[in-house]
């Protein structure tokens, strides 16, 4: 059996890479995808802890996270389409209405 620690470390690495992608990417769709990557990393930690504790609560929580992620993707991509239509760009640097 693979130790739980390995899964946790992998989950942390994936989460960190998601944060990096969030910071460095300039395309709004790619930034949105890095959020999905972070959600996936958290799901991996949930399933690993569920396996370690021998209870299924973690797996159930992953299902709810996936449902919420699907809803989030639908609304978020609607917002992306709206931004692209109103500003003719997907670059987040150009979406600066609230910038001082």
């Amino acid at each position: 059996m693979v130790p739980t620690t390995y899964y946790i470390v992998l989950s942390a690495i994936l989460f960190g890479l998601g944060v990096l992608a969030f910071l460095f990417k300039r395309n709004i769709i790619t930034i949105f995808m890095s959020i999905e990557l972070m959600l996936n990393a958290v799901n991996l930690a949930f399933v690993a802890f569920s396996q370690a504790s021998g209870k299924l609560d973690g797996q159930l929580f992953v299902l709810f996270v996936i449902i919420v992620a699907a809803a989030e993707a639908a609304v978020g991509l609607g917002i992306v389409i709206l931004i692209a239509r109103n500003r003719q760009t997907l670059n987040v640097e150009r979406v600066d209405l609230l910038k001082l």
Partner: peptide, 29 residues
């Protein structure tokens, strides 16, 4: 981001150690 990675990994891994030791025969179920 690297610091965050290391912090999350060490904190969670430490709690994972206690998790494994506290898991009894539940894993077999």
């Amino acid at each position: 981001a690297l610091a965050l990675m290391g912090f999350v990994a060490t904190t969670l891994a430490r709690s994972a150690g206690s998790f494994v030791s506290s898991a009894t025969d539940g894993g077999k179920i």
